[in-house]
Simulated assay, not measured.
Amino acid sequence: MISIEKSSQTKIDKTDFDNLTFGQVFTDHMMISDFKDGEWHEPVIKPYGPLSIDPSARVFHYGQAVFEGMKAYKDKDEKIWMFRPEQNFERINASSKRLAIPEFPKDFFFNGLETLLKLEKDWIKQGFGNSLYIRPFVIATEAGVSASPAKEYKFMIICSPAQSYYSGEVRVKFSDKFSRAADGGVGFAKAAGNYGAQFYPTNLAKEEGYQQIVWTDANSHEYLEEAGTMNIFFRIGDKLITAPISDRILDGVTRKSVIALAERMNIPMEVRKVTVQEILEAADSGNLKEMFGSGTATVINPITGFGNKGKNYDLPKLEDSYAHAFKDTLMKIQYNEAEDPFGWRYEVKE
């Protein structure tokens, strides 16, 4: 039985749900589970608030921190749904294992998450595009600065109400210097340090008028791998192409869903290495029809153009884009407004 300490007052009445900034407002409660004495302890739910943590906690010094991104949705009948949460559970444990963090029990994860969502159900608003963003994460909390894995951790889940995410027109720059990850590294993991290391080169790209970087491989910078924090897809003619997952590329839940949808929609799909040169040639010939990123926050984010070594390329605006078709289909599945032939929806039952 999960222990619940309810907040004495709610912030929901003071929250402007029509003007939310992504990831800035948080719900009334959070889930916490501690790893001590060699085991994870039963999750508890407490009022959302600051943590008291030792300055020598190893997360600050050696970066043992991983996280996930998920969403909950409310349909027209007030039912609460998640989208493929088992994938997120498996991935946070894969990320944890790579950073020598103990894996979290499945029953603790789902019992804690569902209890939290039912408690915060009023924060999940109906309407296409509205959702509750869910952030599970793990940090090393043991005090001490010796360079070794911690023996104590916190697994937490916090939630933030979100509106339909639209980042405007996105132009990207193909990186020819910086790389997101290297062979044998932690690129496949949702490790906090992966994201901190992206900020500087992304800021440089923004100074040049781009919003994101398309990362290339560390060895040769010949292969395109990810766009900012998203997996990336290219449409050449009628064919859709994306890079294969590896120890450098995140195994995105939305990415896998797009690949499955493409097969069901009879869209030619190739999962293979994508070279900078072939994309440049396709753009020059007019065969490059679309580029788009995929991820939990944005679902599908169309890319309007890209730059490479000082040259800019614009992409055509299509009325029948693959990006629109995938986003519409995925969101209708997520909001229980369409058939779910894959069994991706997960109901949070009262």
Rank of each mutant, 00 (worst) to 15 (best):
E350L: 12
K151S: 13
M265K: 15
Y153G: 01
G49I: 06
M331N: 14
N287L: 13
A147L: 12
L119T: 00
G307L: 08
D183I: 11
R135W: 02
N130Q: 03
T15G: 13
N336H: 12
S246N: 06
I333G: 06
A57K: 09
F110T: 02
S96E: 02
H61I: 04
S164P: 11
G193F: 09
K332E: 10
M269P: 03
G38C: 10
P201Y: 12
A57C: 10
N266H: 13
A282L: 03
A100Y: 13
A260P: 11
A262S: 04
F60N: 00
I45N: 12
Y133P: 01
Y153A: 01
R98P: 11
M156I: 09
K36G: 00
M31N: 13
A140V: 03
E278I: 10
D238W: 09
I32A: 04
E347G: 05
I267M: 11
S285W: 05
V186G: 03
S8N: 13
F110E: 09
I213V: 13
A182F: 05
Q211T: 08
E290I: 07
P55C: 07
M31P: 00
I249P: 05
F188Q: 03
E68M: 10
I32V: 11
F233T: 12
P268V: 08
Y210G: 08
F155W: 00
F234H: 04
N301M: 14
S220L: 05
K121L: 11
G23H: 02
G127L: 10
S146Q: 14
G23L: 06
V66Y: 07
N231W: 05
F67W: 13
A260K: 14
L240C: 00
K239E: 11
Y322H: 15
S3K: 14
P85G: 01
G185H: 04
A325W: 14
E319T: 11
F137M: 07
I53A: 10
T329C: 10
L240W: 09
F178S: 14
I92W: 11
A323P: 03
Q24E: 12
P102R: 13
E208T: 06
L224C: 07
S33D: 05
G23V: 04
P201R: 11
R171L: 10
S95L: 04
I45K: 04
E39N: 02
F60A: 07
F188R: 12
F233C: 03
S52I: 14
A65E: 04
H29K: 02
R84A: 04
I232P: 07
E5N: 15
A227M: 14
I134Y: 10
K273Q: 12
D247L: 13
Q277D: 07
K317R: 15
T216L: 13
V274R: 11
H324W: 15
G343F: 01
Q198N: 14
P302N: 04
D13C: 15
G193D: 07
Q126H: 14
S294W: 06
K349T: 15
L261N: 07
A282P: 07
